[in-house]
Computed example of a mutant assay.
Amino acid sequence: MSTALALGYGPQDRLLIVNADDFGLCHSTNLGIERLLVDGVVSSATIMMPCGWAREAALWSARHPHLDVGVHYTFTSEWDAMKWGPVYRGGPTLSLVTAEGYFQRDVKRFERQAAASEVRCELAAQVEMALELGVNVTHADNHMGSLYGLQLGRHFLVEVFEVCAQYGLPFRLPRHLLLESGQVAPPVLAKQAREMAELADSMGVIVLDYLLGLPFRAAPGETYDVMKQQMLGILGNLHPGVTEIILHPSLVTEELTAFHGAPDRRGMEMELFRDPDIRQKLQAEGIIPIRWRDLRNLQRHD
């Protein structure tokens, strides 16, 4: 059964969640995402709890419990000028970090070195930190896809589902895997996605039907119009079921440009779902907006 059917919608209904990733990354990103959440431009956001500005994002979220804010499970630290490491303090985390004590720069090194037991402790610690700061945590997802086994085939989804089941949180995992083009993934990858979704089902964790986003890396000379056309294409080809679209929005400031390699792209993503053409497309396609809170309620049988 699709997640949409489990929520009580029809077999042809197309439901959409728009999530702003990387809340807590820096002050500029926080200000941008807060604005989008308050204005209802995005459905939700997820906080990178290990980051230096996570506390600001979490305390703001605690003051706005009616908005959907989750935990962006973070196990990588990809920029040179700004780094972060584990929040878990109750035991060893050496398999998760470099000699400097920061998370690995890339997913491949994380997959190769991480001990599952340490990953599980860090997952729980990131949720606990958000709860301790007063966040009404609605869901969880994953920064850079580090937990999916995308590089070496070594995933940590069992640990993820254990922690999500413990805290009653749905998780960003697509039941049906699509390529960036929106086409169905090759059979082997599609089968793996279905198997992981079935594992989530067996552990009582609600997952998505589909997961989409703009290409992760910007094309040379990419403009806002190019990005908008890509998003219009995505919205015009949504499949029936629950889809999440991922954004990485931020105000573009000196702070962001000091460490980020493509700051202007994050600024353009701030504007996408404010754009009248995007909003008109959502209406014309009959796409139904929902929230992660709906999935959490389903999981908890609220």
Rank of each mutant, 00 (worst) to 15 (best):
D39K: 08
L25M: 14
V18D: 02
L96S: 06
Q113W: 08
Q229N: 13
I245W: 03
G70C: 13
V107L: 05
Q230I: 01
G149Y: 08
T76I: 13
G134L: 03
Q151K: 13
V205T: 01
D264M: 10
P11Q: 10
Y73H: 15
L211T: 08
P220S: 02
S95P: 03
N19M: 15
Y9P: 06
L16A: 12
D275P: 04
A45K: 10
D275R: 05
Y148T: 13
D294P: 04
L25D: 02
D22K: 01
L247I: 04
R291G: 11
G70N: 10
G70I: 14
Y88M: 10
L5D: 02
R120E: 15
L131Y: 05
V18E: 02
V87I: 15
A20Q: 09
A185Y: 00
T138S: 15
P249Q: 07
A125M: 07
L298P: 05
M82H: 03
G40V: 03
L214R: 03
V42S: 01
L133Q: 14
L5S: 06
S181Q: 00
Y224W: 12
T138A: 15
R175Q: 09
Q280H: 14
H27K: 14
R14W: 12
G241Y: 06
E195W: 03
D209L: 03
P187W: 00
T74V: 12
L177Q: 11
A116K: 06
A57Y: 11
A81K: 09
R291S: 14
R296Q: 15
E271R: 10
E198K: 10
Y167K: 12
Q280T: 12
G70E: 05
H143Y: 11
S28T: 07
D264N: 11
L67P: 05
G10L: 00
L272N: 03
H155G: 11
A197I: 08
I278H: 05
S43I: 08
L214K: 01
I287N: 07
L214Y: 01
V160C: 09
L256M: 08
R266C: 04
I206K: 06
T3N: 01
L173E: 06
M231H: 09
E159K: 02
A81Q: 11
P86K: 14
G233A: 14
M203K: 13
C51F: 12
